[in-house]
Simulated assay, not measured.
Amino acid sequence: MTTQRPRRGRGRKRSSALTVQRRLWLISRLGRGAALPEELIADARRVFGESVYPSNALTALRRDFHAIRNEFRCTLKRQLDGRYALTDFGRLTLLHLPDEEMEALAFLVSFFSEGSWPNRLQIRSLLEHIIALLPDKQRQTIQQPITFRVELPQSSTTVDQKLLMRLQRNLRRHAVQFQYRSNYSDEPESHRVAPIRLFVRDGHTYLEAYCYNSSQQVTIGQYITYRVDRIIPGTLQVERRALPPELPPRRMWSIRYRLSPQVARNRDISLWFSQSTVTYLEDGSAEVSAQTGDLWQAEQILLRYRDHCQVLEPPELIEQMRQTIERMRLLYAQDQPVHKG
Rank of each mutant, 00 (worst) to 15 (best):
P261K: 11
S55D: 13
V228C: 03
K162A: 05
Q237T: 12
S285A: 11
Q336T: 15
S125W: 06
L95R: 08
T292P: 13
Q122L: 03
V338T: 12
R63T: 04
L164E: 00
R14Q: 13
Q310F: 05
D294R: 05
L198R: 00
L164K: 00
N183L: 14
R329F: 01
M321N: 15
I224P: 03
D99I: 09
L281M: 06
L94P: 07
R23H: 09
Y206H: 07
Q320E: 07
R124N: 14
P245M: 02
P37L: 01
W117F: 14
R192Q: 05
L95S: 09
T3P: 04
L58S: 13
I255D: 02
I41T: 08
E287G: 02
L127T: 02
P135V: 15
D229A: 02
S16N: 14
R7N: 03
H129W: 00
A35V: 06
T225F: 00
L95N: 08
V263E: 13
L76M: 04
F48T: 12
P145V: 04
A17D: 10
G284V: 11
T3M: 04
P337I: 03
R62C: 00
Y212I: 02
A35Q: 13
R149P: 07
V288C: 02
A60Y: 02
Q161Y: 01
I131N: 10
A44R: 02
L271D: 10
V311A: 08
I41L: 08
Q4A: 14
M165V: 04
P249Y: 07
P315Y: 09
L302S: 12
R83Y: 09
R329W: 04
R173C: 08
D229C: 02
N213K: 03
L281R: 10
G115W: 00
G33N: 07
S214W: 00
Y180Q: 02
V263I: 14
Q79N: 15
K162H: 11
I130P: 01
S260W: 14
E246P: 13
A290H: 04
Y305K: 07
R32E: 14
Q262M: 10
L121P: 09
F148R: 08
P188C: 09
I220V: 15
G82T: 11
R258W: 11
W272S: 14
R197W: 00
W272Q: 11
Q143I: 05
I255T: 04
L121A: 15
N266I: 08
T292S: 08
D268F: 05
L86E: 07
M321Y: 11
H339P: 15
N70E: 07
E187F: 03
Y226E: 04
Q177H: 03
E326I: 12
V52E: 10
E282H: 01
D186L: 04
I232F: 07
